[in-house]
Design a protein around this nucleic acid. Structure first.
Length: 101
DNA sequence: TACTTGACATTTT
DNA sequence: AAAAATGCCAAGT
């Protein structure tokens, strides 16, 4: 299992999350494809070890804010001037950043 | 070993 | 447009 317990996997996930430029966002799925495993796995890793990374730049594929962090994330988005839609969702069209970049 | 659970994704109602 | 159903991958119990 390439996993939340393996520091290596965790490192890769966190490293990718840290590489996300300010004002941009990426998705769990994208990271999952970059580091391997499944989107949920990435989520679990973030949940356990995401304390030191900008998790607010990592959102769901549909642009919805992180399920359990709506308010926090919103504040950060405002600070980083992340393109958001009136509906409270991030503007994926322009703010999306690909980990493979 | 089998079932449940989860910072998700995609498709269909 | 919004909600439900289905699929995925690995951990936790």
């Amino acid at each position: 299992m390439a996993s939340a317990r393996d520091p290596e996997y965790v490192e890769r996930v966190l490293a990718t999350a840290e590489r996300v430029p300010p004002g941009r966002v990426t998705t769990y799925g994208a990271i999952a494809e970059a580091v391997g495993g499944g989107p949920r796995q990435v989520g679990s890793v973030m949940a356990l070890h995401g304390g030191g990374v900008p998790w607010w730049r990592v959102i769901r594929a549909d642009g919805s804010l992180p399920p359990s962090h709506g308010e926090q994330a919103r504040r950060h988005y405002y600070d980083e001037r992340t393109p958001t839609l009136p509906s409270g969702r991030v503007d994926m069209r322009s703010a999306y950043w690909d980990p493979a970049d």
